[in-house]
Each structure stands twice: as structure tokens, then as C-alpha cells.
Nucleic acid binder design. Structure first.
Lengths: 204, 204
DNA sequence: ATCATTTACTAAACAGTGTTTATTAACTTT
DNA sequence: AAAGTTAATAAACACTGTTTAGTAAATGAT
């Protein structure tokens, strides 16, 4: 059955070719610039062929989103290595924001776009990489709460507080709202505000 | 010259008719469901007519965005009336979040979409309602810092801290990320987290 | 009242989008 | 060699924003 296996491999290879072309176009032209026809052009197949490998465009966006989490994990490496929970939260925050500012298109797909999410609903798939990251933050919050003996703060709420703050900051920056409110100072403001947030949350 | 004046009025009337139809469609079908052709259908004119009253679709979205700030101002009324700066920040936060959760399409246009912003760049227009709201928050932060004698905190950074937090929270909710992470608890979590944020920021 | 001009509007086209259907061409199995 | 399966596509459908050329009516001037 070496033959059917080779067929199988070729199927997967074309699937990867499609995703690779999609990634290229996403990074070059953003989510709005990514179309089925452009992918087809890039791999030199017809648009209809893509539908033999993916049910619809949302499925492709979902796979790209998963790739995005791979990119983000690179940014998180120093945070994963840090043992002290408060320092780790610092690291997570900085890595999260740096990833967001430097990778608008990935960030959009992972944390803003509802199209990969629609695919999750439709195909009973999951957002497990996102959940794993949040679980890691929550665990770190738990450790920090214990270490600093913080009272009356739930780990889940603290984690969501932190996530909301950096998510909002990244979004305000990426959508130009920050630039409009504070011209030419927005990227400087982002780091200053992140430090203020963490300082505020963990001050004694 | 009563004649040209009537003409002028009729021009404005059709412009308002277009915006009214656009508003209707936005609220019924969201930003993705809003198209020039649907507006044209609604007002029973041809699609090309719309381009005699607006340079492009982004200009319409910009005007809708301004209408959105009008809606948001209604939510902010109790906050505007409050004198105590800390209570006022509480009120602003609750109003902001309530507006966001209850008006996804307006919120999207005002704080996330880059299409009205493109129009601002193109036509040298402004985001003055957004800036006015942020200025009001900043002023309130200044008052709160003075009243509570908070040290080492800049009013701009504090205001951005607060804005980021609620903005992030609203977005996580609206894009279903919160629902995925904490099933069936997301709207409860939002209010709990907002309270935690404000409590954290202003604790002694 | 007639002719010229301006105004308001639109039909049709252009270039794009996601997606489906019918068909062809090639390869596999019997 | 004939039958069956598979992979790929051309062409169409129903949309999208936008532009162009043309029409019909209202207005202005003579």
C-alpha cells in the first residue's frame, strides 16, 4: 500500500502549500488582502481546488491563527523560563505587548477576528492554545498571590484584569486610537502604561 | 434665493436619508452586513446616487461613528453628573462597559474599526468626540489623584491604564474569547473584573 | 417660447470577493 | 481494454465598492 500512502502525503503537502501561501499573503497584505483567489494564484492552482482541502476560508484562517500562537510562543520563552511569579507576570506582559505591536496580522487573527471563531463553533474545534496561555497566566497569578500574600483577590479575576489591560493597550495602539489621542508618543506610552499597570497591581 | 435654499435643504435631507438607512442596516445586520447596495435599496435610489453625497463608504462609516458617540453620551450622563472623582471613574467605567456590551456594532465602529479612521486620515477630519471623552477621563483622573493624594502616578498614564482595561475587557467579551475561556460566566466576569480593576487602582 | 446649460439621477460596466456545480482528464482497478 | 475512481478546473452565482457615460428634467438666458 505504499502507493496510497504517497497519495496521502501529496494531499498533505498541497494542504501545507495552501497554508504557506496564505501565510505569505497574510504577512504581506494583511487579513483584508488575503483572498482565496490570491492563494490559488500563488500556488498556481484554481480557486476551486482549495475547497478540496478546506471547507471554507474560515478554516484556513483558523489554521493560520494556530500558526500565530506558534509565533507568540517564541516571544514567551523567557517568561516560561522565569521562576519568580511576579517577574514572570512582568515578562508575560512585555512579551504579549511586544508580540502584539510587532505582529498586527497574527494578533488580529488570534485575539480579535471572529472568523476563526466561527470555524470553531461550526466544526466543534477548540481554542486550546489560547486557553493554555490564559491558564499559564492564571497559574502564575495564583503563585504571585501566594508569594505576596495578597488578600481578597481571586486568581481568575486578577488574570483577566491583566489580560484585559494588555489586550486593550495593544488594540488601542494597533487601531491608531492611541496615536490620535497622543500624537507621536503612542509606542512610548504603551511601555510606560504596562509598567504602571503591573506596578499598580502588585504594589504593597 | 429661496429656491436654491430649498435645493440645499433637499440635498441635506437625502444625505440624512442615506445615513438613516445606513444606521438601520448597521443595527440590524452589523458592519459586515452594511453595503452601499443595501442602503440604495432601502432609500429606493441607485447605488451610484450615494456617491453624489459621500466620497466613499468610509465617509459613511465615519458619520455613523459620530452617531455612535451620541449614543454613548447617553450612557455617560450619570457619570457627567457625578462630582466625586473616584465615584465618577466608577461611573465612567460601568457606563463604558455597559455601552460596549449592549452596542457591539457602534462600539466596533468607534473603537476598533480602521475604516472610519482611514477617512479621518484622508479627509483631515478628526476624532474629536473620542478625544473629548478621553480628556474627560484624564481630568477626572487628575482630580482623583489630588483627592486621594496618590504619589508617583501621572494622570495620562492612569487614564490610559483605565481605558485599556475596560477596552480590553469589552473586546474580549465581544469577540467571544471570554466565553471560550470561562463558559457561561463571561458577562458576570466582566462586572466582577471591572470592580476589581477600580478597587486595585484606588486602594490605599 | 425657444434654446442652452446645469442638475439629479441611473444603467451598465469594472474589478474584485467567497463558493458551488458540471465537466474533463488522468490514474487505478478489475 | 473497460470500468471506476480521483484530482483539478472552467464557468457560473451572488455578492462587494466604485466609476463612467448617458438620460431626462429643471433652470437660466435670450
Amino acid at each position: 500500500m505504499g502507493l496510497t500512502e504517497r497519495k496521502e502525503r501529496e494531499k498533505i503537502e498541497l494542504k501545507n502549500l495552501i497554508l504557506d501561501a496564505a501565510r505569505k499573503i497574510l504577512l504581506a497584505q494583511g487579513q483584508d488582502g488575503l483572498s482565496i483567489r490570491k492563494i490559488a494564484d500563488e500556488i498556481e492552482y484554481s480557486p476551486a481546488t482549495i475547497y478540496l482541502y478546506f471547507p471554507d476560508k474560515d478554516a484556513i484562517l483558523h489554521e493560520l491563527m494556530e500558526m500565530g500562537f506558534g509565533v507568540m510562543n517564541e516571544y514567551m520563552k523567557t517568561a516560561y523560563a522565569e521562576i519568580d511569579p511576579v517577574k514572570r507576570i512582568h515578562n508575560i506582559g512585555h512579551a504579549y505587548i511586544r508580540f502584539g505591536l510587532e505582529n498586527k496580522d497574527w494578533y488580529e487573527l488570534m485575539f480579535n477576528s471572529d472568523k476563526p471563531m466561527k470555524h470553531i463553533e461550526k466544526c466543534c474545534e477548540d481554542w486550546d492554545q489560547g486557553m493554555a496561555m490564559f491558564a499559564f497566566l492564571t497559574q502564575t497569578c495564583k503563585d504571585a498571590i501566594i508569594k505576596l500574600e495578597i488578600k481578597n483577590v481571586e486568581k481568575d479575576i486578577l488574570a483577566l484584569h491583566l489580560w484585559s489591560s494588555v489586550h486593550g493597550l495593544v488594540n488601542l495602539y494597533l487601531t491608531e486610537r492611541l496615536e490620535i489621542v497622543k500624537r507621536n508618543k503612542s509606542s512610548e506610552l504603551v511601555t510606560k502604561t504596562l509598567d504602571a499597570i503591573i506596578h499598580t497591581v502588585f504594589r504593597k
